[in-house]
């Protein structure tokens, strides 16, 4: 056995706990076991302060997740609508310009006919 192992043996010896340890264990061992909670007491656990917070938080989260989904879907639909509207306006503007040009051409041709 090396010196290190001998030192470890000396350092890691068994240690007695403070006086009265066995008595403290026996006191705990003989303490009456807590009665089994009835079903309404188990339910009441949910209403105790830390649990109420968790229940409220989980309710809020379970409401917020679908709400966020609906909101996102609505925004997406609205954006698509806006895009379609812009495209339609552009198409109408282009068509309007063309109609205007054709109209002018027709008018010019009409004037030329009357001169002849």
């Amino acid at each position: 056995m090396s010196y290190l192992e001998e030192d470890l043996k000396r350092t890691l010896r068994r240690i007695e706990p403070s006086a009265g340890f066995a008595e403290r264990v026996l006191e705990r061992a003989n303490a009456p076991a807590p009665p089994e909670p009835s079903w309404w007491e188990s339910l009441g656990v949910l209403l105790r302060p830390p649990c109420v917070q968790w229940v409220a938080l989980s309710l809020v989260i379970s409401f917020m997740i679908p709400a966020a989904g609906v909101y996102r879907k609505e925004r997406q639909t609205r954006a698509e609508g806006e895009r379609a509207k812009q495209q339609l306006m552009f198409a109408v503007r282009v068509a309007g310009n063309k109609v205007h040009r054709v109209q002018q051409r027709v008018l010019e041709m009409g004037r030329m006919d009357t001169r002849i």
């Binding site: 890691l12 010896r13 068994r14 240690i15 007695e16 706990p17 403070s18 340890f21 066995a22 008595e23 264990v25 026996l26 061992a29 003989n30």
Partner: peptide, 26 residues
């Protein structure tokens, strides 16, 4: 009580020693 107490007294040094050397907190 005395019987279980004997077991605790006999082995408390071993169990407490393991816990103390491992946790370093009395």
């Amino acid at each position: 009580i005395p019987a279980f107490a004997d077991i605790v007294r006999e082995h408390q040094g071993m169990v407490f020693g393991l816990a103390y050397h491992f946790l370093h907190d009395r």
